[in-house]
Simulated assay, not measured.
Amino acid sequence: MDSQPSGNPHRARTASTQGRVGRVSRARRTRRSRRSFARMLTERQGERLPRWIDAGRQDDLPSLHSLAAGIDRDRDAVIAGLTLPWSSGVIEGHVNRIKMLKRQMFGRAGFHLLRKRVLLYT
């Protein structure tokens, strides 16, 4: 009986190593794209978005393809959000708070008590 596995063990190791190298390369490209996108957000550089989307589509990273497609559906609004100085953060905070109050009170009380709680916290 032969205890050695059939095939060339060097070839198997080479294929495994190539697979790891490909995964590392993909991880590096993903990290580079993610950092570039984060820099664009923090420095409010919306004019760079079209180039970033094009680069994401050309790269072989499916997660970037889906993100780029989602952003591209509303490209003008995203660019405006990245470049204009106005923010709707305060309004979004109030909406989030009201939704939380509504979830807490679901099935417990009617609209009048919900209205009082919302107005009490304003």
Results as ranks from 00 to 15, higher is better:
D74K: 06
F111W: 07
R32A: 04
L114D: 10
K99H: 12
S16E: 11
A15F: 10
M40F: 01
R108T: 11
A80R: 14
D59L: 14
P9K: 12
H65S: 14
K102C: 06
L67P: 05
G81A: 10
G56N: 10
A68Y: 00
D59F: 03
R48P: 01
R34L: 08
Q58K: 15
R44D: 07
H65A: 10
S16H: 09
L49R: 00
E47C: 02
V90M: 04
S87T: 13
M40R: 01
P5W: 05
R28Y: 08
P62I: 04
D2H: 02
L41C: 06
D74H: 09
R39T: 01
A80C: 15
S87D: 09
V21K: 11
P85E: 14
R97C: 08
Q18K: 11
L41F: 02
E43G: 07
I98N: 09
D74T: 03
R48D: 02
L67S: 06
E47V: 03
K102S: 11
A77M: 03
G70W: 01
R11D: 15
F37L: 14
F106P: 00
Q58V: 11
L120R: 03
R20E: 10
L64E: 02
R32Y: 00
Q18A: 14
Y121R: 12
I79M: 08
A77D: 07
F106Y: 08
V118C: 10
M100A: 15
S87I: 11
D54C: 02
R28A: 12
A12P: 07
H112A: 15
L82D: 02
G81Q: 08
T42S: 13
D59H: 09
W52E: 01
R34I: 07
L114E: 06
A38S: 00
D76G: 05
G110P: 10
T122F: 01
M1T: 03
H94W: 05
V118P: 04
R75C: 00
